[in-house]
């Protein structure tokens, strides 16, 4: 059975993908993120827009296509996300 992911977990997965999976400094394409985060195009578009507006991701215009890379704030958020995921797990909860 597929594991239920909270909105927060999906955001964590997207940020972790842009931080850990990419050697390319130009960032990740939407197609790559859709495949890695395993969500629909319409949903990831909304999430990416929010993450860019919050300053957690940076939008890069590379050879005519939009790419996304994690910002310093995004790295700090991801660290906090992992820390408090562990905190919530101790209570048998997920954030």
């Amino acid at each position: 059975m597929a594991e239920y992911r909270t909105h927060m977990k999906i955001i964590g997965d997207i940020l972790a993908t842009t931080r850990d999976d990419l050697r390319d400094e130009d960032g990740a394409t939407v197609t790559y993120l859709i495949r890695k985060a395993n969500i629909s195009h319409s949903r990831i578009s909304r999430i990416l827009k929010t993450l860019v507006s919050q300053g957690l991701l940076e939008q890069v215009d590379s050879q005519g296509s939009n790419k996304y890379r994690i910002s310093t704030s995004g790295r700090e958020f991801l660290q906090a996300y992992y820390t408090f995921t562990n905190f919530a797990n101790n209570f048998g909860l997920s954030i």
Binding site: M8, F77, A80, Y81, T83, F84, F87, A88, F91, L93, S94, I95
Partner: peptide
């Protein structure tokens, strides 16, 4: 602190 950093509703309830 967790809620302020992540905005998680679970942490708000805690």
């Amino acid at each position: 602190i967790g809620f302020r950093n992540t905005g998680s509703p679970t942490l708000f309830r805690l």
